[in-house]
Structure formats: C-alpha cells, structure tokens
Design a protein around this nucleic acid. Sequence first.
DNA 1: CCTATCTTGGACTGGTCGTTCCAAGTTAGA
DNA 2: TCTAACTTGGAACGACCAGTCCAAGATAGG
Lengths: 199, 199
Amino acid sequence: MPDIKHFDPDAALDQVVRLFWERGADVTGIADVVQATGLSRSSLYATFGGKERLQAAALRRYLERQSRPVFAALAADGRGLPAITGFFERLVAARCTGEHARWGCLVTNTHTGPARAIPEIQQVLDAHHTELRAAMRAALETARDRGQVGPGLDPHAAAETLALLAYGVNLRSRAGAGAGDLLAGVRAVLDGFTRIEER
Amino acid sequence: MPDIKHFDPDAALDQVVRLFWERGADVTGIADVVQATGLSRSSLYATFGGKERLQAAALRRYLERQSRPVFAALAADGRGLPAITGFFERLVAARCTGEHARWGCLVTNTHTGPARAIPEIQQVLDAHHTELRAAMRAALETARDRGQVGPGLDPHAAAETLALLAYGVNLRSRAGAGAGDLLAGVRAVLDGFTRIEER
DNA sequence: CCTATCTTGGACTGGTCGTTCCAAGTTAGA
DNA sequence: TCTAACTTGGAACGACCAGTCCAAGATAGG
C-alpha cells in the first residue's frame, strides 16, 4: 500500500559522514546536508530524526566503516610491532595526503564539540577508544610473544599510550602538522617499546 | 577630555577565556560573553573587535597565562625524566579534577573547530606546539645528560611523541576519560624511554 | 559651568539555525 | 479505478547569531 522511499538512506548517510567529517558537524547546517544529499528536509527528518540523531548515526557509521576495519586488521595482524608501525604509517598518510587530507578523524574531532555530552554520542566515543586500545593491546601481546618488546612492557598500559598517540596524530594533522613530524613522534615511542637486542 | 573605560579589559578577557575554555568558543554566543563579563556589546566590540579577534585574543591569553608558565617550568627543571613525569601527573590531575575538570585544553579544543583556519589562530596553535615540544626536548636532553634515558633516544623525535601524547590526554579528558587510564598511558611511554639500568 | 570626546546601554538589522507543517505527488493492494 | 498509506517539496516558524547604530551618560580640560 504505502509509497516507498525514493532514495537510498545508506548512500545518503555516507554523504553526511563525509560532510560532517570534513567540515565538522556543529558548523554544518541542515541546509548543507539537504544540498549534499539531494534529498529534502522532510525525507531527512522522517528517515534520521533531528540533527542529534543524524550526527550520532553518522558517527556510528564512521566507526563501523572507517575505524573498525582498520582496528580488526591490526588485531589480526600476526607480525607484532611491524603491524603497529604499519598502522601508524598508513594513518599519517591518510591524514596528511589523499582524499581525506587534513580532515582528521571524525571521532577525534567530536571529542571537543558540544555533541560529546549527548549520551548516544558519548557512547560511540568510548566504544572507539575501547576498540582501538584492544586492537593495540592484541598487537602488543603478539609482539611480546615474539620477543620484540622489552620484558617490562605492560601491554595494557602501552596500548593506552598508542591510542592516545593516535588521537594526537589525528588532532595535529587537522591543524596542518607535517607528516614528517608525526612519523618521527610515532617512531620514537615504538623505538622505546622495542627490545634492546632488536635495535 | 575623553571619558575613560568603565571596566578592566584584562579581567574581562580572563572571563572570556574561562567561557571559551569550558563551553567552546564556537558554541558560545556574544550574548553569553556579554552576560559573563557584565559589559555591553558596544564596549566589547570597541575593545576587542569582532568574535574572531576576541577568540584569537582569548587563545593568546590562554597560551601566555596557562600553557607558557608550565612549559617554562618544565624546560627549567633540572631533574630530567622526573620533571616530565611531574608535568604529566599535574596535567592529568588538572584535566580530571578541580576547578577545570573536563574542560580539556583550550588550544587542543581549538584544533578541531572552524577557527583553526583563521591565520591569527592557526599561528597560536603552531606556537603552542612548538613551545611544548621545545620544553619537552629540553627536559629530555637533561635526562640524556644525566644518563636517565636509553642511548638510542632522539630527544627531538621523543619530544614530538610527548607533545602528541599531551594532546591525547587533553582530548580524552574532555570526553570523560579516567585519570587512571591516562596516567597508565603516560607511565608506559616514559618507561619505554627510561634506560634499562634505571628501571 | 561648558563642551568636545569618548563610553555605554540597548534597540535593531539581516541572516541562519533546527524544526514543523501541509498540500501535492506516488504507490500498491482492494 | 479507487483509496489508504506513505513520501516529498517547499513554505513558514520562532529562536538565536554576529554585528551595527545611536541617543544618553560620563569625563576632564578650558
């Protein structure tokens, strides 16, 4: 009986993610979303609810499509430290060059805005951190099993370090930091974790 | 002949710093500034210019009054690694407890917002990073001279690491991260830098 | 006291915000 | 084909935004 949607909500949400990611959700108006997606205010509100709900949906989509696959690859990578090095090298490259250069990370960017207080969004921020840290910890435990890291290294604490470092990279890259500086910062901490004999 | 200002611009700017720091400059309207400072729109615009100029002035004030003294103390501290440990312990404490708990760092918060594109503000962000890194580097060189760090440590690169880590702490603290997690993350990286025999 | 000069309070502007609403259009089962 | 259910475009809403403007008030030299 009913009419059916004349657009693809999934594709529209992807557009919203790009928009919020590049410009920032708080500074992006509904009018911008309407223009970027090509659909009308009515369809937007009927499909996603208000702006807060839309922002939360976009953030979840970002976590699922952008962050989680990379985290999964890191956790599943059996190489140990080289896996972590590769993660950061690809991170810096993505943040400083290519299509998304200087966009930073949508989750990182959301940390400072007013939306961080919305429970639905706060939850995604925490999930992102937990998952990133877990992936780092898995890679560090692999490194420990392979004897690549010093004996005193606590994988749990070191995973927190690397997660915080990733936020620092995301943050500084959005403000124009050079890839060389960021890579040097990453290299130094990984050198610190590396077992002396490996150097 | 002329009348004289009926308020103290310095004290007013301090109020603005607090307001922008806690709530975020982008989400704070001129009306909020008027209410917080107690002065009128006319005086505000006559004294500081528009909002961009006000935000830049507040950011510079924050760097001068909040960041720079701490950086100077770190650079002048002769203890080496303990100075860095102390810096981070005080940082985490300030970010998670007390008057400014969960406010994060105004400079860090500004990294993600639209104001980061304004040259006058971008300049302050870069100055903050340069000065933080220089202070870290000075402390690391002291640590190296005292034999507290491993021989392979590059003070320049390690200083970048610690600066990025500080941004991570600032960022996550604003979103509610626990002091324990943050401290663990800090401890792990400093352990990594520490010379084996010191452990 | 007078007056030139600056400050101040508050009304006001045009524009944008998120959101609501409704008439017109579209669909698919009866 | 008729109609109930849903979508869609676009107008309209009140609230807020940064910024402007001016009359009224305050000041200090003459």
